[in-house]
């Protein structure tokens, strides 16, 4: 982490990235952005890939049970932001916390040291993820995809795991295909299985990264419907969506945040963000969507 910090500093020195003044974050009225007891916390989190600064200082708190949507143009760092929470990517600097506990460091003999695999596994058990490309295991049936982790990772009784998986697959309307292999399913069906697989682990935080953007248009609806239902029913589960489906976001989110040039530029309630964008950047971003819709 320290060496990564150095990279940023040297990058600044060599003027690869010119004056990076953190823009004022625009918070729409009546938006909860801080919590007494946040589930997730990012404090000045930065991430760069080589000389490319993707995230330049993210401050974000997410509450228990909150449904949060992240929007922003392609390449703005939305995926990177949530992949760090899944520990698939390591921040270059800054602090990340889940339930008040640091994600990337731990205390050992009173000293703060980099997190080891055991710490990361403990933290990871609170987080789950649904990927854009589904990432189902191709060598396992739908049912096995859904039961393998509960059985092996959580040590659940196989019968119990199967029972729960079947119930869950019913909810995503895939219970008639439990013995199919992923290759025998359409994209929409695969994604619904992937959602079931992730929810079955009962994570406190479920991350969903553009889960409909790899799908053919006619399949988007079925997946969004399923997600909508799950978002309604799983009141306890915090869900962080990255999506370009703005109508969906309006319907299910408690809060929308807009990422621009490595910072959170604007955040607020869905209605307010989508109907009354304050910054030029967000206005431009939203009008691009409206244009596309009218095409």
């Amino acid at each position: 982490m320290e060496s990564a910090d150095l990279i940023i500093k040297t990058a600044r020195k060599s003027k690869i990235q010119k004056k990076d003044i953190k823009p004022e974050m625009i918070v729409h009225e009546g938006t909860l952005t801080t919590f007494d007891n946040p589930l997730v916390k990012y404090i000045n989190v930065k991430k760069n890939f080589g000389e490319l600064q993707v995230l330049k200082g993210i401050d974000l708190e997410v509450g228990y049970g909150e449904k949060l949507t992240i929007i922003g143009s392609s390449g703005s760092g939305k995926t990177t932001l949530i992949r760090m929470l899944m520990t698939l990517e390591k921040p270059s600097s800054g602090i990340m916390e889940i339930e008040g506990e640091s994600l990337w460091t731990m205390k050992k003999n009173g000293k703060t040291v980099p997190a080891d695999e055991a710490h990361l596994r403990k933290m990871r058990s609170k987080v789950g993820m649904v990927f854009q490309q589904y990432n189902l295991f191709p060598h396992m049936t739908v049912l096995d995809n859904c039961t393998i982790a509960p059985i092996k990772v959580k040590g659940m009784d196989p019968e119990e795991a199967k029972e729960q998986a079947i119930q869950m697959l019913k909810r995503v309307k895939m219970s008639d295909k439990i013995n199919y292999y992923p290759n025998q399913l359409s994209g929409g069906q695969k994604q619904r299985v992937a959602i079931a697989r992730a929810v079955l682990m009962r994570p406190k935080i479920l991350l969903l990264d553009e889960v409909t953007s790899a799908l053919d248009p006619e399949m988007v609806g079925e997946v969004l419907n399923v997600l909508n239902e799950i978002a309604q029913e799983e009141k306890e589960m915090t869900m962080i969506f990255v999506t370009h489906e703005l109508d969906f976001a309006r319907e299910i989110s408690d809060r929308i945040i807009f990422i621009n040039e490595g910072y959170i530029l604007e955040q607020g309630k869905p209605e307010s963000i989508l109907n009354d964008p304050k910054s030029e950047r967000l206005q431009a971003f939203l009008s691009r969507f409206k244009e596309n819709r009218n095409l």
């Binding site: 899944m86 698939l88 695999e117 058990s125 789950g128 990432n135 189902l136 092996k152 990772v153 992730a198």
Partner: peptide, 16 residues
């Protein structure tokens, strides 16, 4: 590598 990421997201141990 997506398969390995999915396994990580499901919190498998390295040997699992």
């Amino acid at each position: 590598k997506e398969q390995i990421e999915a396994a990580k997201a499901l919190n498998f141990t390295p040997s699992q």
